[in-house]
Amino acid sequence: MRRRSLLLQVGVAALLLALLALLVNNLAVNLLRTGLGLDFGWLGRPSGFALAESALPYSPSDSYLWALTIGWLNSLKVIAAGLVLATLLGVAAGAARSSSNRLLRSLAGGYVAVIRQVPLLLQLLFWYFVAFLGLPETPIGGLIQLSNQGISMLGMPLSVEFCAVLTGLTVFTGASIAEIVRGGVNAVPRGQWEAFRSLGLSEGLGLRRIVLPQALPAILPALTSQYLNLAKNSTLAIAVGYADLYAVSDTTITQTGRAIEGFLLLLISFLLLNLLISGGMAGINATVLGRMRRSR
């Protein structure tokens, strides 16, 4: 029985490998046949296009490679900020859904219900064209400056495009995270709630110190998927004019006509980024599980 199962697995693995080889061979043959052989020489040539924002110095005389790097950094910036904000929002909304306060509970419920029904692209377009571009010029206490050209917070200028993408990703992913947190919290036996209440702990403190830590193992794996989704969804930024990696790749591909190479680079960049995120999350997961086991 076990041998059969083993044989089957080896067979399937071999078949998969053969498939992969066939695919790669197909790609190579077809590329050659259509004269589209892979060539990355263009990466060193000057890009010739300007970018609205860059974390490091960039000018159109810099290479395509550098332009793509700047795009990647712009993506990274919005993804990193999005991960933090979406987590905060999601945990807050998720906790609110298990709250004993009815107003808080229905507010959070409404948020999740509305946001999850509307496609992200539409939400991005809404945040950008309606919310941010509709902003009148309003200084708030001298520290925050709002206008439809950009937002300045404590002297740090943020473009409206960045703000729209960040808000869109945060609000959208926050709703999914809220559900994951609620699910995790619900998975903690009711007895735990009764236990901390009987010890005289407040709802907030009990949630933070007793319930959430026990909910974490259920939350983390699903949370990783949401993080990866957020990273991938950030490519929708091009719809609202944010110069992310996809937007820069898009321009690069048209100017060089190197679509296959461009998409390969895009693929690899996102693979790297997502491996980084899932690697980090796996590490956190292991730490949490390890700590739980020790504390038992």
Binding site: A50, I238, A239
Partner: peptide, 8 residues
Amino acid sequence: PYTPIKYQ
């Protein structure tokens, strides 16, 4: 000098 705002 100018700032390009690029859309798809």
